[in-house]
Structure formats: structure tokens, C-alpha cells
Amino acid sequence: MVTKGKELEYGSTLIFINKIDLSRNSLMGEILDELTRLVGLGTLNLLMNHLTGNVLKNIGNLRWLETLDLSKNSLSRHILERMSSLTSLAQSNLSLNNLIGRIPSGNQLQTLNDASMYKINPSLCRSPLLTKSLGDGTSDAPTITGSSVEDE
């Protein structure tokens, strides 16, 4: 790694890396789950690449993660329930992907109640998006009948 004009080589000290910004690098393929070994990671920015597949399988290992930006990629699987164990997460952006299924609820994800972090993922459902899950017949959205609103 080159920082401030000095070339640094990391070996066993990789666990101390706090920030990774690989945004706008035309990276392709799945996100390597090996990133979850960087347990001290506070920021992970993979914005605007060509990444596919799932949000990190073992993302729950990143207990100190405060900022996660995976937007503008081609992620196309479920958001894993393990994301709800990221208790330090203060900012997250998963928008502009092809993620599917229900958005996990619980813990920190409930405090990040901003629908824009999930926008343009047409097959996602649940609060804060208030849309139905395909095939499960459930919704967190109110049902409008006549002039009254009833919760399902």
C-alpha cells in the first residue's frame, strides 16, 4: 500500500486496517468474503463497480463497521440477516443493485430507517420500502380500503 508517498507492506497486521475505499474501480465478480477477516474495519466503500452475487456471507464479523456503501453494483441476492448484527453501523447504502427478498429487521438496521439506502432494488421488500415480498403475500405497508387505512 502506498500512503503519503511511503510504500507499506502489510502481512499479519491486516486486521488493523480501518478503511477500504475501492469505489469506482471497475471491480468485477463477487465480493470476497475474506474481507470479513478484517475485524477492525470501520468503513467499506465498494460504490460503483461491477460486483455481483451476495452481500458478504460473514458480514456479521465486521462488528466495528460504521459505514458500508455497496451501491451502484450488480448485487443480486438476498440481504443477509447477519447484517442486523452490525451494531456500529451508522451509514449504509445498498441502492442501485438487484437485491431480492425481505430486508432484515432488528438491531441497527431499524435505526437506519432511510428508504433511499435501498432504492432501485425492485425485488426488495419490507420497511422502510413498504412493498410486498414476491410470493409471500406479506407487506409492512398499510392496506388502503375505501377512505380508511387499515394495517394488515
Results as ranks from 00 to 15, higher is better:
N58D: 12
L62K: 03
R37P: 08
T111N: 15
L94I: 05
E7V: 15
V2P: 05
S116C: 08
L22E: 09
N58G: 07
Q108W: 06
H78V: 08
G137M: 06
E152C: 12
I15R: 12
E66Q: 14
V149A: 14
E7A: 12
G101H: 00
S76R: 04
R126F: 04
I144V: 15
H50T: 08
I79P: 02
T36P: 05
C125D: 02
S116K: 10
M28D: 14
I31A: 00
T36E: 07
K132R: 09
I120L: 12
S76A: 08
R24Q: 13
V55D: 03
G11E: 14
G42A: 11
S105V: 06
S105G: 11
G5T: 03
P142I: 04
L46D: 00
S84E: 08
G146M: 05
I144Q: 14
E152T: 13
I59S: 01
G42S: 14
S123D: 09
G29H: 04
I20P: 02
G60N: 06
R82Y: 10
S148W: 11
G146V: 03
L32M: 09
N54A: 09
K6E: 15
Y118Q: 03
S92R: 06
N18T: 11
L46W: 01
L99D: 03
L134K: 12
R102N: 03
L68H: 01
N54Y: 03
A115N: 08
S116T: 13
Q91R: 12
K6M: 12
N18I: 06
G11T: 15
L46C: 01
V39D: 08
L44V: 05
I20K: 00
V149I: 15
V149F: 13
L38E: 06
L68I: 02
M28W: 11
S127Y: 00
S116I: 09
G42I: 08
E9V: 15
V149C: 14
T143N: 12
L27Q: 03
G137L: 09
S95P: 03
N25R: 13
T138W: 07
E34Q: 11
R37L: 14
I15S: 11
L47H: 05
A115V: 10
N18C: 08
I59W: 02
L65T: 04
I15E: 11
A115H: 10
G137N: 13
N98T: 10
L68W: 03
L47M: 07
G60A: 07
D136P: 00
N73D: 04
L99N: 00
L70E: 01
L35F: 09
E81H: 10
T67W: 12
T52N: 10
E30S: 08
I31S: 03
R82H: 14
L96D: 15
N54I: 04
I20V: 10
E81C: 07
V2K: 08
T43L: 10
L134D: 13
A90C: 13
K119P: 05
E9H: 13
L22M: 14
G29E: 06
S92Q: 14
L41G: 04
F16A: 13
N121S: 05
L80H: 07
N45Q: 07
I120F: 15
L65M: 08
I103C: 01
N93Q: 05
S71L: 01
S95R: 02
L70N: 05
T131L: 02
L47P: 05
M1F: 07
T52K: 06
N54P: 07
